[in-house]
Design a protein around this nucleic acid. Structure first.
Lengths: 209, 209
DNA sequence: TTACCGTGAATGAGCGTTCACTTTGACTGT
DNA sequence: ACAGTCAAAGTGAACGCTCATTCACGGTAA
C-alpha cells in the first residue's frame, strides 16, 4: 500500500524528536511552540501530528530518552571496585566525552523534566520507577563490593545508593545551570572524601547511632 | 494622602506572594494563571498588578525566597565540626522540622526554578551568585575544620564544598520528586561514607584515627 | 492508481494584561 | 471627635495575542 517505508517513517519521527530536543534545550518546554519544532525539523506544523498525539507526547518521548541515558548505564555496573568508582561510572554518560552536543541537550531537558514531575503523574511514576531501578542497581554493585572486600561493611547499600543518586543529580544541575562541567574534578574530590575520611574525630558525630 | 498604610500594603503583597507560592507548588509556574493566583489570594485579577509588574515579577520574588531559604543559613555555619556535620547543617532548612508546609512549597518551587535558570539570564545570574556564595561559605567552614584538625588536610575545600552543594541539591530533588523525605537517614549514611571510608583498597592512604 | 503523507491557513481556547469604573480609608478642617 | 474629601486601591469584563490542534486539499511513493 502506498505508505512510506517503515524505515523512512522512523527516520522522520527521529528527526522530529531531535528537533524538539534542540528546541527544548535552547528555549525550554514552555517557550517552544509546535511550529517551532516543526520548523526546526524542516516540516510543516501539521506534519508532527502524524507522528505524535501532541506536544505532551513529544515531551514524554524526550523524557524517555533522558531516563535511558541516565539509568541504563547503571544496569550494567557489574564490577565497580569502590564507592567513588561507582560514582565515576554513574557520572560517565554525563561527563560528555562522547556525543557532547546530544548529551548536553538531554541534560538541559532533564532539569526541566524534574519540574514537570511535580505536576505530571504518569511522568513521575516512570521517573520513580527508573530511579528505584537505578538505586537497586547501585545497591547491588555495592553489595558485590562488600563481598569482594572493597566496600566497607558498615555501608548500607540502599542508603549509600541513595546518596550516590543525589550526587549524580546534583552534578547534573551544576553542569547545566552553573557551567561546572569538570566531572573529573568532582569525582576526584569525592574519592578523597570517601577514601581518606573527611572526619578525623568522632567529636562532631551526634548524627551517628 | 489617602493610600493604605505601608503595613497593610506589605501584608497584601505578602498575601499575594503566599498565594502564588501555593499555586506554583500545586500546579507549576506555567499551569498557574494570574487569575488563579488572585483567586487564591482572595483579590481580583487586576489587583495583583498594583503590587507586581507581571507574572515574571512574582516568579522572581519566589525565586528570591528560595535562594534565601537555601543559602542564607550557610552564611553562618561557623563551627561545623566535620564534613558530614556540614551537610547536616546545610540540609537543616530542608528537613522541614519547622514550617513544614511553607518549606515544602518552596522546595517544589525550587525545582521548577532550576528549569527556569536555563532560559532566564538574570535569574541564572542571581542563582549563580547565591551558589558561589554558599560554596565559599562551605569552603570557609571546611578550612576552619582543617585548622581545628577535624577535617582532613587532603580535602580541597572548594571542591569538597561543590560536592556538598551537589548533595544538597540532589537531596532536594529526591524529597520533592520521589517523596524521600528522610533527611536524617541520608545524613547518617553520608556520615558513614565519609567517616569510615567506603573504600578499603586501592592505594588509599590511611589517615584515619 | 490510490491510499496515505505533508501542507499551512484556519480555528478556538486560554492567558496575561489593561482600563473605565466603583469602593475605600487616611487625612483635613472644624 | 467627626464628617467630608479625594486620590489611591480594588474590580472584573474585555482585549489582543499566542499557541496547540485541525482539516480540506494538493502531492507522492508504493
Amino acid at each position: 500500500m502506498p505508505r512510506i517505508t517503515q524505515e523512512r517513517r522512523d527516520a522522520n519521527r527521529a528527526a522530529i524528536v531531535a528537533a524538539a530536543r534542540r528546541c527544548f534545550s535552547r528555549q525550554g518546554f514552555h517557550q517552544t511552540s509546535m511550529p517551532d519544532i516543526a520548523r526546526e525539523a524542516g516540516v510543516s506544523a501539521g506534519a508532527s501530528y502524524r507522528y505524535f498525539a501532541g506536544k505532551e507526547d513529544i515531551i514524554l518521548e524526550i523524557a524517555g530518552e533522558t531516563f535511558a541515558m541516565m539509568f541504563a548505564p547503571l544496569h550494567q555496573v557489574a564490577g565497580a571496585a569502590s564507592v567513588a568508582d561507582l560514582l565515576a561510572a554513574t557520572a560517565d554518560p554525563i561527563s560528555g566525552e562522547r556525543d557532547r552536543d546530544a548529551v548536553g541537550e538531554l541534560l538541559r531537558c532533564t532539569v526541566q523534566i524534574w519540574g514537570e514531575l511535580l505536576t505530571n503523574e504518569s511522568m513521575r511514576e516512570r521517573a520513580a520507577a527508573g530511579f528505584e531501578q537505578a538505586r537497586a542497581d547501585l545497591a547491588d554493585a555495592l553489595r558485590r563490593g562488600q563481598s569482594a572486600g572493597t566496600v566497607a561493611a558498615e555501608v548500607d547499600p540502599d542508603q549509600a545508593a541513595r546518596v550516590l543518586m543525589a550526587l549524580l543529580h546534583g552534578l547534573i544541575l551544576q553542569r547545566v545551570a552553573f557551567g561546572l562541567d569538570d566531572t573529573a574534578a568532582f569525582a576526584r574530590e569525592l574519592q578523597v572524601l570517601v577514601s581518606q575520611a573527611g572526619v578525623l574525630t568522632p567529636g562532631g558525630s551526634e548524627l551517628k547511632d
